[in-house]
Design a protein around this nucleic acid. Structure first.
Length: 424
RNA sequence: GGAGAGAUGUCCGAGUGGUCGAAGGAGCCGGACUCGAAAUCCGGUGUAGUGCUAUGCAUUACCGAGGGUUCGAAUCCCUCUCUCUCCGCCA
């Protein structure tokens, strides 16, 4: 969440930001509730001070009458306090919920716009792959080669689940290791994280585990959820902690399964592996000093480029429009790889995403560092995809397909695969 | 899964319902001593709020988390989380 003390001092900026993000947040009501809360807080604290004073008076030996009078006074204070406290708790809870709906501030250079198409393509790498034959999509390629099986995935687990088989398995493992090696070269500490996290962590990262539009699977009666990304488990790792300044930046990379409900996510553009309920992903995560987060955001993006350039896949980088930013993100860059089987003649499809969430998540999760003046301050937190295995496989199968139905393995992956082609 | 023990500040650790934001130690910061250092001695040293006559003063909350009992809770009761020990089961 943002710093609610800034609701008044940066009111116009916050209001404008909500408009730019096309969000439905009633800022004036939140400010009014904040004032109500402050008034009730003062009242509560004054009563508590009276209660404490009354209790102090009763420490020593007292004659029975004085003692009785003090107890009566204490009881009266207690009754009044419990009423005021109840009112305060109600408004406090409401205000906290409302404050959480306010999005993060936005980087001044982020393109302003409502939708996906308002996002700005800031870089193109390589030429979209062309074939002298009619290109197939990855579903057809994968099923023909018997490396992907959607039918049995649906039978056993349901719609949008799949099996990976045969050399497809080796391809996925090769990709994992290939990406891991590149990320490690840049000084990240590797993790395999839990695939489950507590709701409070989800909330702190900015995911809403509840509600009809939630993309999160919750596990009935446990207070926990299946993670949609290792961003959650890596970001929760230091929750509640004060990190010594000299430990920063902390760079982590985590492999996890990712589970997403994707309610209403069917259709042409999300077929096959592109949008599924479960996939594996290697995620990068950085905790750093506030003044360094823009720099590290660029570093994550450049590592993502290194991974996709190494695979020799054409892609573009998109600077995400304000209306498409998640609430925690201050700025977000996506890499969209060329996917020849997407749409009629191929299209770019998202394969990575990196966000600078500044101190928005750190404030909710209470993650701080001790500054030179001895005061704890909130760290900045950034995340980025190293490789989302399912989507990377879409891009590889479609770009490296051959007319005979076989798929050439990208040269960078051959040492990891132990073969250079998948054919029938 | 069963039985038991525990969770206190940066760390270790004491704590009989009121004199406890919390003994004692370590660490850290400042000072004295020293040519300098070590040792020693003296002083200081949590976090998050709120109010105001604002580099300060006052006040509230925080002893794993959340409830409860009480005039008053680190201390008593309940629930939960986590850690440790033993048993069972198991890749």
């Amino acid at each position: 969440m943002i710093d609610t003390r800034e609701l008044k001092t940066r009111y116009d900026e916050i209001k404008k930001n909500i408009e730019n993000r096309f969000m439905n947040v009633d800022l004036d009501k939140i400010v009014a509730d904040q004032e109500k809360r402050a008034a009730l807080m003062q009242e509560t604290e004054a009563l508590r001070a009276k209660r404490n004073e009354n209790a102090q008076k009763m420490k020593g030996k007292l004659d029975p009458d004085t003692r009785k009078a003090l107890i009566e006074e204490g009881k009266a204070i207690k009754d009044e306090l419990s009423k005021v406290e109840a009112e305060y708790n109600e408004i406090d809870k409401l205000f906290a919920e409302e404050a959480r709906t306010i999005p993060n501030y936005t980087h001044p250079d982020a393109p302003i716009g409502k939708e996906d198409k308002d996002s700005l393509a800031v870089k193109f790498y390589g030429e979209p792959t062309k074939f002298p034959f009619k290109a197939k999509d990855h579903v057809q390629i994968g099923e023909d080669l018997d490396i992907l099986d959607f039918d049995n995935g649906a039978k056993v687990a349901g719609q949008k689940f799949y099996y990976i088989k045969n050399k497809g398995v080796i391809l996925q493992m090769a990709l994992e290791r290939y990406a891991m090696d590149i990320v490690l070269k840049h000084g990240f500490t590797p993790f395999i994280t839990p695939d489950i996290a507590k709701e409070e962590i989800l909330n702190g990262i900015g995911f809403n585990p509840r509600g009809a539009e939630s993309n999160i699977y919750t596990i009935e009666g446990t207070g926990t959820c299946l993670v949609g990304t290792a961003e959650i488990t890596l970001g929760g790792y230091y929750s509640g902690e004060i990190i010594p300044k000299d430990k920063l930046p902390i760079k982590m990379t985590g492999l996890s399964h990712c589970f997403r409900r994707e309610a209403g996510g069917a259709g042409q553009y999300s077929k096959g592996l592109y949008r599924v309920h479960q996939f594996s992903k290697l995620e990068m995560f950085i905790y750093c000093l506030p003044e360094e987060s823009d720099k590290f955001h660029q570093e994550i993006l450049s590592i993502e480029e290194e991974i996709f350039q190494g695979l020799e896949l054409p892609y573009r980088i998109v600077d995400t429009a304000t209306g498409d930013l998640g609430a925690p993100a201050y700025r977000k860059f996506d890499i969209e790889a060329w996917m020849p089987g997407r749409g009629d003649e191929g299209e770019y499809g998202e394969v990575t995403s990196t966000s600078n969430c500044t101190d928005y998540q750190a404030r909710s999760l209470n993650i701080r560092y001790r500054d030179d003046d001895g005061k704890p301050k909130f760290v900045h937190m950034l995340n980025g995809t190293a490789v989302a295995l399912s989507r990377a496989i879409v891009a590889i199968l479609e770009n490296y397909q051959n007319e005979d139905g076989s798929v050439t393995i990208p040269p960078a992956l051959v040492p990891y695969c132990g073969f250079d082609r998948i054919s029938k």
